[in-house]
Each structure stands twice: as C-alpha cells, then as structure tokens.
Amino acid sequence: MVKVLFVCLGNICRSPMAEAMFRDAVKREGLEGEIMVDSAGTGDWHIGQPPHQGTANILKTNSIEFEGIKARQIQPKDLQEFDYIIAMDSDNKKNIAKLQSDFSKASVEVLLDYVPHIKDKNVPDPYYTGNFQEVFDLLKQGCEKLLQHIKHEHVLE
C-alpha cells in the first residue's frame, strides 16, 4: 500500500481539498486498494474541524466527496508511516523537515514540484486569499502529475 499525506498550515483548506481530489482520482483509476490518502496541518488551531466552507463548496461543485475529513496535526510518526508527504508550499515543507529523524522514510516534496511548467511552486492559502477556484485548479494539476508519478514509481495500473 502506497501512503500519501497532504500537508498545509491548518488542514482545513488546501490539504483536505488535495486529499479529497487525490482520493477521487485514485478511485477513478481503480487504485483504492493500492493507494491510501490522508491530510494534516503543521498547526494545531483547527484539530477536529471539517474542511473550510470554501473548500467544501468547491468540492461539492465538482462532485468530489469529502465526508469524514477532519483536521489533524502532522506527527513525527507520519514521517515513518507515509511514503509521500506532500506540502502545499515551501514553508510547510520546512516545518515538516523539523519533524524528520533517522527513522523517517517519507519523501517530502512540494506538490507543484510535480508540475514543471508552473513557476511559483507555492499553492496560495485561500484562507487568506479567498480564491478557492485558483487553489482547486492548481491542486488538480498537481494531483494528476503526482498520481502519474506514483503509478510509474510503483508500477501500478
């Protein structure tokens, strides 16, 4: 089982949106038994809360299920349990790196690093910008490329 964890700041906007979108793509590819998806935040402000209303709205508009997603904070053990930890921006990646130890096995990357033609690799935080559509569009590209990468790396069809 390939395990993927999406991480943003509070785990109510970007990472739960990516989790839901990636899970939807995995399901469409028939890979639910091969790939497990979760999300977390580097901060603890929203633990236990559902996705932000803006995230919920755009996922509903695009018929993407997100039921059961609740905010949680990333833990050091996540770096041992997940294969891919995918940060939404470089600050998230730096905060994740602080949790790394000799026992960490996860590859920690920024999602948009998988999309070569996009120059700014940071997914903007719609909690501050309010632009959930822009984030959705960026995550869609990133999730598609990440899934292609994982399918190739792990020879999944």
Rank of each mutant, 00 (worst) to 15 (best):
D125C: 08
P51R: 06
G142T: 08
I86D: 06
E134I: 02
F6D: 10
T42Q: 05
G43N: 09
D125V: 09
I12P: 07
V2W: 00
M88H: 11
F6I: 10
N92R: 10
P126N: 13
E34T: 00
R14E: 04
V26I: 01
R28P: 02
L5T: 06
H149D: 05
Q80T: 14
K105H: 14
N62L: 01
L111C: 06
D137Y: 03
C8D: 03
R72F: 05
G41Q: 07
A71F: 02
V108T: 14
L156I: 07
V110N: 11
E109M: 13
F6G: 12
G43C: 07
G68E: 06
N57T: 07
V4N: 04
S104V: 03
D102W: 11
S63P: 01
L99V: 14
F6S: 01
R23K: 14
V26C: 02
I74F: 02
F22W: 06
K151W: 12
D120F: 04
Q49V: 00
I85R: 10
A20G: 04
I118P: 01
A87Y: 11
Y84N: 10
E109N: 15
Y114T: 03
P116I: 09
I74Y: 04
M21S: 00
I85K: 08
E65Y: 05
K151A: 02
E109W: 00
H154E: 14
K140L: 14
I35E: 12
G33I: 06
I118W: 03
P76D: 01
N131E: 14
K105D: 00
V7Y: 07
L5F: 09
F22G: 00
K98D: 05
H149Y: 10
T129E: 03
C143D: 01
K119R: 02
K27A: 13
A71N: 06
D89V: 12
L59N: 07
M17L: 15
D102P: 07
E134G: 03
L9E: 09
E134Y: 07
S104G: 07
Y84W: 13
A97V: 03
K27C: 05
F136N: 02
E19R: 12
Y127R: 03
R72N: 12
F6Y: 13
P126H: 08
S63N: 15
G10P: 06
V2F: 04
V2R: 02
N131Q: 13
I85G: 12
N95T: 13
P126C: 11
E144L: 10
R72E: 13
A97L: 11
M17R: 02
E65H: 02
S107A: 14
H52A: 14
V4D: 02
A71M: 05
E34I: 00
M17K: 06
S104F: 15
V26G: 03
E109V: 10
K93T: 07
D83Y: 08
Q80S: 13
I118K: 03
K98C: 05
D89W: 06
S104W: 14
L147N: 04
K60L: 09
Q73G: 08
K60S: 04
G30P: 12
K94L: 09
S39Q: 04
L111K: 09
N11G: 13
F82C: 09
E144Q: 15
I150P: 04
H149S: 12
D125H: 11
L5A: 06
D78W: 11
N122Q: 04
I96T: 10
N122P: 01
Q53K: 12
A106M: 12
I47Q: 04
D91A: 08
